[in-house]
């Protein structure tokens, strides 16, 4: 079975190492991975702005591109949620390609946990780590239990990171408050967005975390921008980088 790697636009252009780490991790776990040429974006920026006619052709392209693969794996909860939960608006519900792609697109941690069933990783990361749970991973893909919800769910991201030797967990006061990225929200509501991000960073830093880890690089791009501006003593890393054995500071 061949799995397609879907690399979101901003990871491709700005954080290639996250994609490399994802690819290497999947290969090391014996997954047959292909990287279909011609991929760009899931269409989320347009969709979240409400520009449906601008989203439709982008969504169509993605579905056509990935239709022949048995599964699609992507290191971004937000983009996966776009495909899984929001593509219905752009397709005929009977469209076989659409049905296949939306039901077989996985967020990386979800894929490793649910499909591959990873129970062992020969990786060390001897650092104090705190988890930033991205909203879409948490509340749209249910990679864990959001703090508002009383439905018990296991936390797939944390469970995978627990396979890494040496991680010392640091718990922020607020386990899943939004970081304020929100795509175009970060620019539309720049003041509120920055203030939300600062609060997250202060919470994680205040607990002595060295590494703010997340399965969504878009949140981290925003937080990293603030951290570097304000020179906070903390670094960001994508979960794929930690799982694949990158040292501290890879992002």
């Amino acid at each position: 079975m061949t799995v397609a790697l879907f690399v979101p636009c901003y990871i491709d252009q700005l954080y290639p190492d996250v994609a490399i780490a994802t690819l290497e991790l999947l290969e090391r776990l014996g997954v047959d991975v292909a990287y279909p040429d011609g991929q760009t974006c899931c269409g989320q920026p347009m969709a979240n702005t409400g520009c449906e006619t601008d989203t439709a052709p982008v969504a169509r392209r993605l579905v056509d591109l990935f239709a022949d693969f048995e599964a699609v794996v992507c290191p971004s909860g937000s983009c996966v949620s776009m495909v899984r939960n929001h593509y219905a608006a752009y397709f005929d519900p009977e469209d076989a390609k659409f049905q296949h792609v939306t039901s077989k697109t996985y967020e990386l941690c979800e894929y490793l946990h649910d499909v591959v069933g990873v129970t062992h990783l020969d990786v060390k990361f001897p650092h104090r780590v705190s988890l930033h749970q991205s909203c879409h991973g948490l509340r749209e893909l249910r990679l864990g239990q959001s703090s508002e919800s009383m439905t018990p769910r296991e936390n797939k991201v944390r469970k995978l990171l627990n396979l890494v030797e040496g991680i010392e967990w640091v718990e922020p006061d607020r386990p899943d408050d939004c970081c304020g990225f929100g795509g175009t929200f970060a620019v539309n509501e720049a003041d509120v967005s920055a203030e939300m991000g600062r609060a997250r960073i202060a919470d994680h830093c205040g607990k002595g975390s060295e590494v703010l880890a997340s399965a969504d690089m878009s949140c981290l791009m925003h937080l990293q921008g603030l951290i570097r501006r304000e020179k906070n003593p903390i670094q960001v890393m994508h979960v794929a980088q930690i799982l694949s054995g990158r040292p501290l500071g890879a992002a």
Binding site: C135, L138, R139, C178, F181, G183, N188, E189, V192, M196
Partner: peptide, 13 residues
């Protein structure tokens, strides 16, 4: 409607 990061916390609460 744009004064929202689409975090979804409201829907869960």
């Amino acid at each position: 409607p744009y004064a929202c990061s689409l975090c979804g916390s409201c829907s869960d609460v």
